[in-house]
Design a protein around this nucleic acid. Structure first.
Length: 865
RNA sequence: GCCCAAGUGGCGGAAUGGUAGACGCAGCGGAUUCAAAAUCCGCCGGUGGUGACACCGUGCCGGUUCGAGUCCGGCCUUGGGUACCA
């Protein structure tokens, strides 16, 4: 009797798969192709248990598709540019490139023992010049195709560190390192013109039947198509050459309730007025100190500044013009009319600054005037209106909107307009560790694209003979003369290279096409990309529901326009599955904190590792100190929260199969799962049980008689059906529960050797996508032919699934009271007779007749008394 | 703030509008053992009852239905996203 020894068998079978070349993607005209892809990881340093969950899911699909006769492409790479590498270099003096590639090496080594069915020959990292050089070629093609333009945009500016900050690096309006008040600064930046495709990106969502509805809905809302009115209010007295304020509103039905005009702090009139009014300039400066995030803007206290100017209201009188901190320059026209009666934010503002509140309609049942709660006119419900410009007295909000647009168009003061919430995608980043933008700025020729022959424009590793000093804030490319100063590609005169790099979302927006021909000397090889695209199944975290997936959808379209993808790849991901995150308890101490020299550093919360925390009778403390620790509810595992769980510990203790089985069994894959250590032990026990079962069956008398062959076979075929369905529908946890149950039945079975052998080999095959090594070993021990991983997937025999009798629960008034067993095809009236003769039913009826008798054939009976 | 989800025993969770709690963990009881580990068997939502059984029970309030964890309306809590974290 041998023992289940994962370390030995896992190494053996990984070697066998590699030698068989089982996972090297090969085009095969005799098979349908299948491309399964998990979102590639950022090389943060180590794999965590969330990665294992993600890749185990993809591996189940990939192995299942191999077993069902597909030519499978299942690649892996690294999303390798990004801020953490620069932060690491800043903190510890290394180089982002060294840090990143060292992490990749570590993570590849951590990947290998998991036994994933990956084609490593196609591996690349987005920071490989071979990859980002092709990305630069794509950029040039897209620029030429008119998909990119350049204009000013606002960034977070740290005035002490003299650098641009990411939103994440702005904590309560202050720079994360310097602690200085962050300012806004306008820089000229590159944009992908994604808004040009807003309409088609929206419409195509309808065709994505195999995407989660929630993701389609989130994207729909994000794109945010609305029809509204763009209209101009003439200035009562023109000022600084501006004679009217153009506003956009999605609720023109509330025009009659307009009580003031709100200008964005970035509006041209605001800027002109601020030059002559120091108080206004101060107000605008204050607005500039707010976080740039939408969440912060929306939640910030609403503040305004009365300009003293007015516009003429086409409905009579004038409206005051205010500068308001909540009016966005990026959406609409940067100016609004405010209707306090019917918009809560406007109402709060009006109450604060004593502006009028004017009702435009009364709901049928409620004529009370607006006091503290704004009443938003319902779009689809009829209400009575007053003062509607077009004279409407009754109708829905939608009808009033259209009537007002018609009226404004007839008056010649405005027109109906479709507006999108979606903004263009700013791709410029003032950072070193990203893909250089292949542009040269020439005094004579202006903005000049690099020649394709000069690609890739590689990042300089060092500064001449000096290492680059990453501890100096700001972009080292800016202060790198030999890299920065180059001849103009057009005229040859000395010029300056663009020192901004690309947003890392660009890198991840087309990598899935590159896997089809990772070494091609063009961005894609049309033959290969035509064969393998689309991605049949894409798997990744729900946190990417909007940005990454929307950008990728845009990029696929842009690549079609530039001839790098076939038309059929406009929607690159046929099916999407968004798995939940692995969460874990986190512990923190509120700031401020001090470095070794006692200087204050981060003002924000500091997170502790679980092993730095200890529990005492009166709460949680930092180990060995008197510092109290805040225990957070389970949250997303992330390096910054120090709550990452290392899967290698489990693998070295129990083996990869146990780790895989556990992360798949513990929770439904789309839901978040909280990491707890306890389940791993149980998973391991179960695998050992299967192993022992295999041993027991192998030792049976091959010619002996048994009992219950038929019953075991029936159970086996039901299990095949249920597990197959589970795997296809991402019900991995349910499939595993079914396998537990079948294992229980098999281990108690007294069936003949022949049937038990068939059952345990089928069990191995059904487990193989989750626990491939154990499955392979069981297969081998039972004398299976070839590799289990290459064996065809078992098929459930329909004839074995049919039951002769069914159990019908009997409900009385919707509550289960009894059950009867009847032949499967018993006619309804006979079932009714049996039910009426049932003891519990007769007791409930007490001699009377049922009010109603509902028989759902094969399912349930309900007697209403 | 806004958009999108989720909420079921002590815990993870199962359940095409049709027997709520499959399967697993923990716990309890038993077998085996000199003893333990390992393994195996049984019990396991709450209240009442010896029991048959009865009543209650899927975050909260209401609705639709013969029947609601599931559908609809309104809340609460937690999580994700919120455009320079990836």
């Amino acid at each position: 009797m041998s023992r289940y020894d994962p370390a030995t068998i896992e190494a053996r079978w990984q070697k066998a798969w590699a030698e068989a070349g089982l996972f090297t993607a090969k085009r095969d005209p005799s098979k349908p192709k299948y491309y399964v892809l998990e979102m590639f990881p950022y090389p943060s340093g180590r794999l965590h248990i969330g990665h294992v969950r993600n890749y185990a899911m993809g591996d189940v699909i990939a192995r299942y598709k191999i077993a069902t006769g597909h030519a499978v492409l299942h690649p892996m790479g690294f999303d390798a540019f990004g801020m953490p590498a620069e932060n690491a270099a800043m903190a510890s003096g290394g180089h982002p490139k060294d840090w990143t590639y060292a992490n990749i090496d570590t993570m590849v080594e951590q990947f290998k023992p998991l036994g994933l069915s990956l084609d490593w020959s196609r591996m690349f990292a987005t920071c490989d010049p071979e990859y980002y050089g092709q990305q630069q070629a794509l950029f040039l093609d897209m620029l030429e195709a008119g998909l990119i333009d350049r204009r000013p945009a606002v960034v977070n500016w740290d005035p002490v560190d003299m650098t641009v900050l990411a939103n994440e690096q702005v904590i309560d309006g202050k720079g994360w390192r310097s602690g200085a008040e962050v300012e806004k600064r306008e820089l000229t930046q590159w944009f992908f013109k994604i808004t040009d495709m807003a309409e088609e990106l929206l419409e195509a969502l309808d065709g994505l039947d195999d995407w989660p509805a929630k993701v389609r809905l989130m994207q729909e809302n994000w794109i945010g198509r609305s029809r509204g009115l763009e209209m101009t209010f003439p200035m009562t007295a023109p000022h600084a050459g501006i004679d009217g304020i153009t506003v956009y509103t999605t609720r023109p039905d509330t025009l009659a309730g307009a009580s003031f005009i709100g200008l964005s702090p970035g509006h041209p009139l605001t800027k002109a007025l601020a030059e002559e009014n120091a108080d206004l300039a101060a107000f605008v400066d204050e607005c500039k100190k707010m976080d740039t995030t939408e969440a912060a803007l929306e939640k910030a206290e609403k503040k305004g500044f009365d300009t003293g100017l007015t516009v003429d209201n086409p409905l009579g009188g004038t409206l005051p013009i205010w500068v308001a901190n909540f009016v966005l320059m990026d959406y609409g026209t940067g100016a609004i009319f405010a209707c306090p009666a019917h918009d809560q934010r406007d109402l709060d503002f009006a109450r604060k600054y004593n502006l009028p509140v004017i009702d435009t309609f009364f709901a049928e049942s409620d004529d009370t005037p607006v006091e503290t709660d704004a009443f938003v006119p319902p779009k689809t419900e009829k209400v009575r209106w007053v003062n509607q410009p077009a004279g409407l007295t009754e109708g829905t909000g939608e009808e009033a909107v259209e009537a007002t647009i018609d009226w404004a168009e007839a008056q010649g003061i405005g027109q109906g307009k479709v507006q999108f919430r979606l903004r263009d995608w700013g791709l410029s980043r003032q950072r070193y560790w990203g893909c250089p933008i292949p542009i040269v700025h020439c005094e004579d020729c202006g903005v000049v694209p690099e020649k394709k022959d000069n690609l890739p424009i590689e990042l300089p590793y060092d500064n001449g003979n000096e290492p680059i000093d990453f501890s100096i804030p700001g972009n080292p490319l800016d202060r790198h003369p030999t890299w920065r100063d180059v001849p103009c590609p057009a005229c040859g005169k000395m010029a300056k290279r663009e020192t901004d790099t690309m947003d890392t979302f660009v890198d991840s927006s087309w990598y899935y096409t590159r896997f089809t021909a990772p070494r091609a000397d063009t961005p894609t090889d049309l033959d290969e990309v035509g064969y393998w695209m689309n991605v049949d199944q894409y798997i990744g975290g729900i946190e990417h529901a909007i940005l990454h997936l929307l950008y990728s959808r845009f990029f696929a379209r842009a690549m079609i326009k530039t001839g790098h993808l076939p038309e059929s790849a406009a929607e690159p991901f046929d099916a999407l599955f968004t798995q939940g995150m692995v969460t874990h308890a986190a512990f923190s101490i509120a700031g401020p904190h001090f470095d070794k020299e006692g200087q204050p550093t981060y003002s924000r919360t500091r997170y502790l590792y679980p092993e730095e925390v200890e529990k005492r009778s009166d709460g949680m403390y930092e180990k060995g100190t008197e510092t109290r620790v805040v225990t957070h509810p389970p949250m997303k595992m992330s390096k910054s929260k120090n709550n990452v769980v290392d899967p290698l510990a489990i693998i070295s203790q129990y083996g990869a199969d146990t780790a895989r089985w556990f992360v798949l069994s513990d929770s439904p894959p789309e839901r978040d799962v909280e990491w707890t250590a306890s389940g791993a032990e149980a998973a391991n026990k179960h695998l050992a049980r299967v192993w022992n079962l295999c041993d027991r069956i192998a030792a049976m008398d091959p010619d002996g008689n048994g009992q219950g062959d038929e019953d075991l076979l029936r159970e086996m075929h039901k299990t095949i059906r249920d597990v197959t369905m589970g795997v296809e529908s991402f019900g991995f946890n349910a499939a595993i529960a079914r396998l537990y149950a079948f294992t229980g039945v098999l281990s108690k079975s007294k069936a003949s050797h022949k049937v038990q052998r068939e059952a345990v080999m089928t069990l191995a095959q059904l487990m193989a996508p989750m626990t491939p090594h154990l499955a392979e070993d069981v297969w081998h021990h039972q004398g299976g032919e070839g590799l289990c991983a290459a064996a065809p997937w078992p098929i459930a025999d329909e004839a074995m699934l049919v039951e002769a009798t069914v159990t019908l629960p009997i409900q009385i008034n919707g509550k289960r009271r009894d059950e009867i067993s009847v032949p499967k095809d018993m006619p309804k009236d006979e079932v009714e007779k049996l039910v009426l003769a049932n003891e519990a039913v007769m007791r409930a009826l007490d001699g009377g007749q049922p009010k109603k008798l509902i028989v759902v054939p094969g399912r349930i009976v309900n007697v209403v008394v």
